[in-house]
């Protein structure tokens, strides 16, 4: 019988990194992804669960120099409501507000959302638009060792990341977006609520005199990992948002994604809605 035999709740990051050790234990935050799997018996329950929520440093939103830092245990509902994030984190706050439902948003953490590494993770694409980095910590000879990984390099496949055994995600960092930028993000599902995205797309634009100076495009649920849209960005760079440009951008988007067919939607349909959503965002931006 696989049962959880031990529940640990370290109070410091150092203690946590030591406990995590070889990575056999489950790192537990909101439990909104692990819980259903355990309850349905689809994964072996770990012998040891390490709850990371008692560690103060992993909570909350703060400014660190030029960067905004979001602790790994910050809840979706906190991100959704945070005034600084609503102002300077582009699509992140609204995307957090579209996760599942209030009960889940009150438990799900940004660290968990990223470490589960679902291609459909709702916060991943907004973080791609921010050029965000995640911070990983592990135990070293002289205490906690930290390293940073760009969000685009963090995901390595469905359910997998570059996080090594013994590493924990401590926070997400990014530079706040200047007022001269605009962000849009949307996810597509059969229902308006309680949906795991069939496809999601976001775009960040910095325009001057009607010309795109800088663009970021990201996609969710249309590849093994959340994906940055390099080709779409290239089609945007230095351009005015004319109908022809938008058509070329959406074509590039449909081209550079790699969706699958599953019980939720077909690959071709996912391509279509990515194009439609992105086209509508760019049309809105052109009209603004």
């Amino acid at each position: 019988m696989t049962v959880i035999q031990e529940y640990l709740a370290p109070r410091t990051l150092e203690e946590l990194t030591r406990l995590v050790g070889d990575g056999e234990a489950a790192i537990y935050a909101g439990g909104t992804d692990l819980g259903p799997r355990w309850n349905k018996d689809v994964v072996e329950k770990p012998a040891t669960v390490i709850d990371v929520k008692a560690i103060a440093e992993l909570h909350g939103v703060r400014v660190d120099g030029e960067e905004v830092v979001i602790g790994a245990c910050t809840l979706m509902s906190q991100i959704e409501a945070d005034p600084m994030l609503r102002k300077s984190a582009g699509a992140l706050a609204p995307a957090a507000g579209r996760v599942a439902c209030p009960q889940i948003r009150n438990r799900a953490t940004i660290g968990g959302n990223l470490c589960n590494a679902s291609p459909a993770a709702d916060t991943a694409v907004p973080l791609i638009l921010l050029d965000a980095e995640v911070e990983l910590a592990s135990v070293g000879d002289d205490g906690v060792v930290r390293r940073r990984v760009p969000i685009t390099e963090f995901f390595t496949g469905p359910g997998s990341t570059c996080r090594k055994p013994g590493e924990v995600l401590t926070c997400v960092r990014f530079k706040p977006l200047p007022d001269t930028t605009s962000c849009a993000w949307d996810k597509f599902g059969t229902r308006p609520a309680m949906e795991i995205a069939v496809a999601s797309v976001g775009v960040m634009l910095e325009q001057a005199d009607g010309v795109v100076k800088r663009a970021r495009v990201g996609y969710g649920s249309v590849a093994p990992t959340p994906l940055r849209g390099h080709k779409a960005e290239a089609e945007l760079a230095g351009k005015r948002l004319t109908a022809e440009v938008i058509e070329r951008v959406t074509a590039a988007a449909r081209d550079e994604i790699n969706p699958i067919s599953d019980v939720r939607a077909g690959a071709e349909y996912r391509r279509t809605v990515i194009g439609v959503m992105l086209g509508r965002m760019l049309n809105d931006a052109a009209g603004a």
């Binding site: 909101g30 439990g31 259903p36 309850n39 349905k40 009960q103 009150n106």
Partner: peptide, 23 residues
């Protein structure tokens, strides 16, 4: 048992949560 129906909702420190997903 998977946080999809809300029938197990309770308040945990003032926040509504699915108690089937809380240890």
């Amino acid at each position: 048992g998977e946080g999809e129906c809300g029938a197990c909702s309770v308040l945990l420190d003032g926040r509504v949560v699915n108690s089937c997903l809380v240890l």
